[in-house]
């Protein structure tokens, strides 16, 4: 029962990832796509956490931290790119 319900929650998270993927492909503007990519990252974190419980081992828990950090950093870099047109500022006066 436990395993079945966890499987159902993984399937639901996958559905929500595919909805966000639709927004990534269709999205009318660039910020829409970034927002959808960010939420895909969060959903993957959820999937990994549920997978840890399903497989009954705590060895995948590092992945949560890794994906969280990667999603955050990539969102920050993309937003920076949108705002200024570059990722790394060379001018440090503002």
């Amino acid at each position: 029962m436990f395993q079945t319900l966890l499987m159902a929650s993984i399937i639901m998270l996958t559905i929500s990832i595919s909805i966000a993927l639709y927004r990534v492909i269709r999205g009318p503007s660039l910020p829409d796509r970034i927002l959808a990519l960010d939420s895909i990252g969060y959903n993957i974190i959820g999937i990994v956490a549920v997978l840890c419980m399903m497989l009954d081992s705590s060895s995948y828990l590092e992945t949560i931290l890794l994906i969280g950090i990667l999603a955050f950093l990539s969102t920050v870099a993309l937003c920076k790119f949108l705002e200024r047109g570059v990722v790394i500022d060379r001018k440090r006066n503002d």
Binding site: L6, M12, S16, I19, N43, M53
Partner: peptide, 19 residues
């Protein structure tokens, strides 16, 4: 399981909000 399902439904609904 109840907590996981609550969390899953919340994140599914907010993905619907994207649409």
């Amino acid at each position: 399981v109840v907590m996981v399902l609550i969390g899953t439904v919340l994140s599914l609904l907010s993905s619907l909000g994207f649409l």
